[in-house]
């Protein structure tokens, strides 16, 4: 294994490619997601998406926010070579819902909201609450691992350039771009 600090910089692109693939799969191959997580009811884009384009010494960032936000700005950025740097997701399994954001660079979770657990009213409730909360956090981590390992399986195979990449390029090309764009 490479030195961790070296590997972090050397493979910085890998997480952003994963999130870009994830956006494509959510939009175009939802059945693929159910094969990865058999308990998945739905995986949806949430209310925030960040795309970044690293060109020479500069980084152009487009942030799309809001529950009703259109993703056209993001698609335009992808057409210009950007990748998804951060994605907000809603994961539904049965009648339970998780919300979280995932950063491509380090796959850290932020804004993690798991299904509601019983309130902690006394010290005696702590143990049960910890076990329940840990199990719910584990569900979101298992989902991310399942998705990421599937991405790796494709990315490290000839399938990536032969099949996945052409489909993703077709998806990016088929999406409409806005007439006017604003960058943040």
């Amino acid at each position: 294994m490479l030195d961790v600090a070296v590997a972090h910089d050397r493979f910085r692109f890998l997480g952003n490619e994963f999130l870009t693939w994830l956006w494509y799969v959510i939009e175009s191959e939802p059945d693929h997601l159910r094969r990865i997580d058999e308990n998945l009811t739905a995986l949806e884009l949430g209310n925030r998406l960040v795309v970044q384009n690293h060109r020479q010494q500069t980084t152009e960032t487009v942030t799309i926010r809001g529950d009703e936000a259109g993703m056209e700005e993001g698609i335009l950025a992808l057409k210009k070579g950007a990748l998804v740097a951060e994605i907000n997701l809603t994961y539904r399994s049965g009648d339970q819902t998780w919300h979280f954001s995932l950063k491509g660079e380090d796959l850290q979770l932020s804004g993690l909201k798991v299904p509601q657990t019983a309130p902690v009213e006394s010290g005696e409730d702590i143990e049960g609450a910890v076990i329940e909360k840990a199990a719910l956090c584990q569900r979101s981590i298992d989902l991310i691992d399942g998705l990421y390992f599937e991405f790796l399986r494709l990315r490290l195979d000839d399938l990536w350039t032969a099949k996945v990449l052409p489909r993703m390029r077709g998806w990016i090309g088929s999406k409409n771009s806005p007439k006017n764009r604003q960058t943040a």
Binding site: V4, D106, Y148, L152, L156
Partner: peptide, 21 residues
């Protein structure tokens, strides 16, 4: 820290061929 590279190396169960790629 588990970030994309270390997660791949330490958790994904990659084969030696996949590690080379």
């Amino acid at each position: 820290r588990l970030f994309p590279y270390t997660l791949a190396e330490l958790r994904a169960g990659l084969s030696s061929a996949q590690r080379d790629v």
